[in-house]
Design a protein around this nucleic acid. Sequence first.
DNA 1: ACGACCATACCGACTGGTTGGTATGGTCGT
DNA 2: ACGACCATACCAACCAGTCGGTATGGTCGT
Lengths: 216, 216
Amino acid sequence: MNPQALPPSRQKILEAATDVVRAKGYAATTVDDLCAAARVTKGSFFHHFKSKEEMVLQAVAHWNTWTDGVFAAAPYATAADPRDRVFGYLDFRRDLLDHTVPQFTCLMGTLVQETYATHPDVRAACDRGMSSHVAVLTRDIEAARLQYAPDANWSAESVGYFIQAVLQGSFIFAKAKQDAEVARGNLAHLRRYLESLLGAPGDVRTPNSDRQEPGL
Amino acid sequence: MNPQALPPSRQKILEAATDVVRAKGYAATTVDDLCAAARVTKGSFFHHFKSKEEMVLQAVAHWNTWTDGVFAAAPYATAADPRDRVFGYLDFRRDLLDHTVPQFTCLMGTLVQETYATHPDVRAACDRGMSSHVAVLTRDIEAARLQYAPDANWSAESVGYFIQAVLQGSFIFAKAKQDAEVARGNLAHLRRYLESLLGAPGDVRTPNSDRQEPGL
DNA sequence: ACGACCATACCGACTGGTTGGTATGGTCGT
DNA sequence: ACGACCATACCAACCAGTCGGTATGGTCGT
């Protein structure tokens, strides 16, 4: 039918990998775990992927196209005002916290922690993936900055990374506490901070966006 | 001599564990890795610890007493003004970023990511450790709040967690990029935010610390 | 002072189960 | 009949943990 549809086994393996790896980590996830979760045999696994590592690299790619789609299709993405898109993104992430911990956490944040020193290709893939997500966010932040804080001494990109760091750090606490409450509190602080940089959505102009600060 | 000194092998294993686990993660670290790094034999390892997991629990405890000591002995800890202690903490963490990635990252943040779903005791130990570190920080934040932002509608504890989340998230980016620049930028944003909550160190009173915000 | 006794620390070969990966053969659409 | 896809059996390497044993030093009865 669809010529670019992945073979079903391949697809199922990649999807199972995002769930299992986020729950158990990369090293602790065995190929048999994956096969069981995807209801696929080992022969099928190694037919589609020449190694566990190659599979996880493709899982990262698969994850990125999937999340890109989710955020692109989210309601906030079509807001006319870039500042509304930035705050819409924050609210969207906040609402995601209503799901279970393994569902709202980030595959790449989990992966990179345990592979950065031992699996260079995985590390690089996570770096690229996270940075490109920041880049998407940065475009909206930059547009909002030009409109609402043109003299600001902070860069849109540094704010993009800051937002992602708060999210990643919040995931760690959500895992530690098995509860998203801390993450919600963190997103509230983050929102308050962005309001101090860009003004709250609806404000005509923004306050203290030009406080002195060494270059970011 | 010292009756409570740990046997040297035990000590060496715990210290090796903090380094090796932070670099490779828990699951990927083998007992043989640890023994090699600590220059100890396997027999010795299992003489002191009845399992790998029991060892890592003790490594977390060891880590916590060690870091508690480091922060308690840091110069900022004796500042009279609590707000100076809070900003001193931030600067101290920023300066730590001059070391290598495996040196400034957090054992518990690394551990909890990959064990939260599979090793409940490890997860709980990390939760306790991180929360108690937040509690120490929270005391200074609360004192500073009473003095500089008594009407604030944010809780000191939520700010303590926010600070830690920014740090943990920054570590993830430092690992992904093998570089601490993003982390430095994040700490600069974090400082700017805390200045908006408490006023900059030296200010007599603080500005917008009472903006409306749902309870944290 | 001295030997019997014992606790602690340490050693490294070994084991049984697990793991990533392979070999080989079957099925099914075209 | 051919290749993409999938299944089963299998393997060698590796892993956490075990076990029998040595070294050292302290205690205590005599």
